[in-house]
Amino acid sequence: MSGNPSNAPILAAHHICHTYSGPSGDVVALDGVTLDLSRESFVCLVGPSGCGKSTLLRILAGLLKPSRGQATLDSHLITRAQRRIGVIFQKANLMPWRTVYGNLALPLQLIGVPANEQARRTQAMLELTGLNRFAGAYPAELSGGMAQRVAIGRALIHDPEVLLLDEPFGALDALTREQMGEELLRIWARHRKTVLMVTHSIPEAVLLADRVLVMSPRPGQVVLDLPILLPRPRTLDLLHQPEFVALTERLRHHIRPN
C-alpha cells in the first residue's frame, strides 16, 4: 500500500478476456484488457463500435463474469454487482410506472433509507438535476435529455464511489448532449466520484476526461492511454483551442489509422 491512499487505484481490470458463445460460433469480445482508475479521476473509454466497451463495463460493474482475468474494487475481487458502483446505461432505463420522483427514490427504497431521509435526498436530487417541476411526471412525458438526467440522478442518489457510464448521451441530440456533458462535469466536480465513461465522441472524451483510453477493434485491447492535461474547469470554449484540436486529432488517428 502506498502512503497516499487517494492515489491507489480504486477500480482495476487485470488481463480480462471475454468470449461470448452463440449459435454462429464464439465471439472473442475482449482479449487481455488491463486498466486501473485512480480515485476521483474521470476516465473516458473510446473505441470502434463492437470492440467490447460495453462488455468491459458490464464486467467492471459485476453484471457479467469474465471468461478470464479479474476485476477488482479496492483490491477486492468483484464477483457480483454492488452498490458502491453506480451504472448508467445508454438508454435512460427508467421504470415507466414510476414518476420522476419515484424513479429517483428507488435506490433509497431498496437500501431501506428512512422515509424522511428519502424525501430529503430525493428533493435535493430533483434540485441538482433541475427536475423540480417534473417530480410528478412519468417517463413517457419526458424528453430524452430529461429522462437521461433522471437516470444520472438515480445513479448518484445513493452516493456510489464509482460511476460507470455506457454511452450515456448516445441517444441525445448534439445540443442536449453538450449540455449534459457540462452538467456531468459540474456534478463530478462537486461530488468527486471516480468515473469511467464510454463514449463514441472524441471531443466529448477530451472535454470531460483526465485520461482517455482507446480500445482496438475486436478483440478489444487498450492500445492507448492518453492523459488530458487541459486545465479545469473546462467549458465548450475549449473546442476551438489548438491544444484541444491536437489531442482529438491524435485520438482520431489511433482509432482510424488511415
Binding site: 457480483r80 454487482a81 454492488q82 452498490r83 458502483i85 451504472v87 431498496l110 445513493h158
Partner: peptide, 13 residues
Amino acid sequence: PSELRDLMEALES
C-alpha cells in the same frame, strides 16, 4: 427488459 433487471442487480436488490 433485461436492462431493468441489470439495474436492480446493480442496486443489490
